Simulated assay, not measured.
Amino acid sequence: MTTASLTGVIPPVCTPLTPEFEVDVKSLTRLVDHLLDGAVDGLFVLGSSSEAAFLPDAHRRVVVDTVVRHVAGQVPVVAGAIDMTALRVADHARTAVAAGADGIVVTAPFYTRTHPAEIEVHFRTIAAAAAVPIYAYDLPVSVHSKLPGELLLRLGAEGVLAGLKDSSGDEGGFRSVILGKRDRGLAFSVLTGSELTVDSALWMGADGVVPGLGNVDPHGYVRLFRAARSGDWAAARAEQERLVRLFTLVGVGGPHMGRGSSALGAFKAALYLRGIIDYPTTAVPQIPLDADEIAQVGKHLADAQLL
């Protein structure tokens, strides 16, 4: 995989769990087959939709080993090395590389407060530890640091970073990175994590999308991407609007649980109802959806003709 090749639809793969909170390997391989059947262009394991923050290290290793082995080179597999600071992240990165991951996805440091100069050291440290492309993950809602666009572009020009997965919600900043990449002629992959505005991001010049909802409906996101790439913006908009309506399933958990519990629970409930995974289990301490809420997810799937 070259630095410029991570494009298209790269879903952040959910991590199926058993009721005892072990990785459900059989369900994970079925989920991978479901995504490959949707003609996705790559897979991202151990990101936010993978519940990476909730998984012990042994679970993380099982996920990377299972997905890399099952994909067997059909598409690139990038792995999140998400942890608080550089030395811990470097350990995760080396483990993922040893398992065969094609790239590593890294946030800014968190828990500790860091200066942009320290964030730069962080990325340089991980790049030195892993002989695969490194992708920055801009996720300020979780790590409390917004990645500066100029820093990303400079590290991209130096070959430290191969690209950006942007989940910041800062559309202006995202567009500035796209413009900066274009103006400097960089081989730097710019991916949006904002699954509800993919058509807009692609119109601005984004290289692809990392959609959590893509676990549930990879075919829809692939249709959207292909329509945009062919210049059929009306078709891209129509597909995006259908996916926006489907995305309302993330709210079925209501006010008695966190938004993350509701969204990840809804994704897993949808996969369970579609027969792709065996259990809708989410990792503790997330609050699970109850039977009525899972039934609501089913109604959303039926409305989208996915059930």
Rank of each mutant, 00 (worst) to 15 (best):
A53W: 10
V106H: 03
A128Q: 15
P76V: 11
H70I: 06
A90Y: 10
V97C: 08
T85Y: 00
R60V: 08
V89G: 01
D102M: 05
D83H: 08
E51G: 07
V89F: 06
A90E: 15
R124P: 14
T112Y: 14
V63D: 05
T85W: 00
R60S: 03
P56H: 02
H70Y: 09
V78M: 12
V75R: 05
D102C: 04
L55R: 00
F54C: 09
A98M: 03
T95L: 11
L87V: 13
V68L: 02
H70A: 09
R69K: 13
P76R: 11
A99W: 04
R124G: 13
P76A: 09
T66D: 05
V105A: 04
Q74V: 09
I126Q: 11
T114M: 15
M84T: 14
G73L: 02
V62A: 07
A99M: 04
H122C: 11
Q74L: 08
V67E: 09
E51D: 09
I82W: 00
H115L: 08
P56R: 00
R69M: 01
R124I: 12
A93E: 04
A93Q: 06
F123Q: 10
E120I: 13
V63I: 10
R88D: 04
T95A: 14
H70L: 07
H92S: 04
V75E: 03
V68I: 06
A86F: 01
I104R: 07
D102N: 13
H70S: 03
A127Q: 15
F123V: 11
Y111F: 15
G47C: 12
I104K: 06
V89M: 06
D65N: 13
T125E: 14
A86Y: 03
V77F: 03
A53M: 12
D57R: 12
R69T: 10
V78H: 07
L55C: 02
V63W: 09
A52S: 13
R94D: 01
L46R: 00
D102W: 04
F123H: 14
V78Y: 05
D65P: 04
A101C: 07
R88L: 12
A128S: 14
H122S: 11
A93T: 04
I119T: 15
I104E: 10
R61H: 08
M84D: 11
L55E: 02
